[in-house]
Amino acid sequence: MSIPALETRDLTIRFGGHVAVNAVSCAFHPGTLTAIVGPNGAGKTTYFNLISGQLRATAGEVLLRGRPMAGLPASARTKAGLGRAFQLTNLFPSLTVIENVRLAVQSRAGAGLDLRHMWSHRRDLIEAADRLLADVKLTERRDATAAALSHGDQRKLEVALLLALDPDVFMFDEPTAGMSVDEVPTVLDLIAGIKAKGNKTILLVEHKMDVVRSLADRIIVLHNGALVADGEPGAVIASPIVQQAYLGLEVAE
């Protein structure tokens, strides 16, 4: 197989005596969508934080297209093609919706250090941001502040920021959590759209099994920080360890 878009080798982090992520080795290939499942506290978000650089690993490494990311701050990893949407909504609250997206587009375009021109000088960035707002169906709320949005709309904006970065590796951390039922398909369609491009690598932390089943090519299961199952969705969901660890069911002997 080709070089994985993203790979972790023995990735470990300890908080005092607690091992939150325990020697997780896993490779993610372009064009695949991998769902990461596991009970609360299994270390899914911590695993994401280690990959995207919000936390420093105690041991092990993260490789992006074979390139070690050790010591690189989150901003450099984003520049290298690693995009992340957050589980707890993480926006620029008093800036407008369009400005939130425009900032992400601007980062992607590498225009952040331009002090000479007005921000409105880059029409291309504003238009790109507007297109993304249309994609996530937020055009109506364009000029509202991010803080004024409903929870579901904030989640969509969060997704728009990630789309704006157009990374090679997309990391979604429960993108539909807390969304109303009619809003969920918008986000899932966007994720499916990214997958359809065929060259993007998608990591998705998700609790809803129907979502996982319909989107994922592969499921990995984390339990107490360790990787306990990895494979085809059907097989993994049916495996005893998942029935026990994730779904909490007693397995009939």
């Binding site: 919000q54 984003t78 993480n90 620029f92 900032l103 601007q106 980062s107 952040g112 880059r122």
Partner: peptide
């Protein structure tokens, strides 16, 4: 009011997210 100035405001609002967007 430049692209740079807007990043400063983003940092004021949420430096963690500004970093995650790729701004050092």
């Amino acid at each position: 009011n430049s692209p740079f100035g807007r990043v400063l405001q983003a940092i004021r609002e949420n430096d963690f997210r500004a970093e995650a967007l790729g701004y050092r």
